[in-house]
């Protein structure tokens, strides 16, 4: 018999980048009932009037899960001011989550998010986590 599909649980950790070449410490927690992170997506939030329409590498992110026990993510984050053609897709991850552990890491800005006059544009980054939880807690939360 086909298993009934259930909606994943999505959580967001957000941080601000205020200066060029900023190094931002990331320190967050996911709810204890989440058991697995199966996808991740990074997004520079809000509209930025950047000099170029696409910045493939605005900065670099590194994330450690389960209070620094695992290090599954080291990646770059890009920005495009062109409206998206297709809906963003979560990058696949298969990370078991231990309850009440932290997600830590850093983000390093590359100093590329500039307006037409070459001035840095401060921005906000959303980290989306696509997670699974205990089946009995999946509904009625």
């Amino acid at each position: 018999m086909e298993a009934a599909a259930t909606t994943p649980v999505w959580k967001i950790i957000q941080f601000d980048v205020t200066e060029p070449y900023d190094i931002v410490c990331i320190d967050g927690k996911l709810p204890a009932h989440l058991t697995k992170c199966k996808g991740i997506y990074f997004s520079i939030k809000n509209y930025l009037d950047t000099a170029i329409s696409e910045i493939p590498e605005a900065g670099e992110i590194s994330l450690l899960f389960n209070s620094r026990k695992t290090h599954p993510v080291h990646d770059t984050i890009g920005y495009s001011k062109v409206p998206t053609v297709k809906r963003p897709v979560f990058k696949k991850l298969s990370q078991m989550l231990l309850p009440n552990q932290t997600i830590t890491g850093f983000y390093l800005d590359y100093g590329k998010v500039l307006d037409r006059r070459g001035h840095f544009l401060p921005y906000t980054v959303n980290i989306y986590f696509e997670c699974e939880c205990f089946k009995e807690m999946n509904h009625g939360q």
Partner: peptide, 13 residues
């Protein structure tokens, strides 16, 4: 969708 969920996550052209 939690707070701060961007609309672009569910839109296409």
């Amino acid at each position: 969708f939690p707070e701060e969920w961007e609309l672009k996550m569910i839109t296409c052209n």
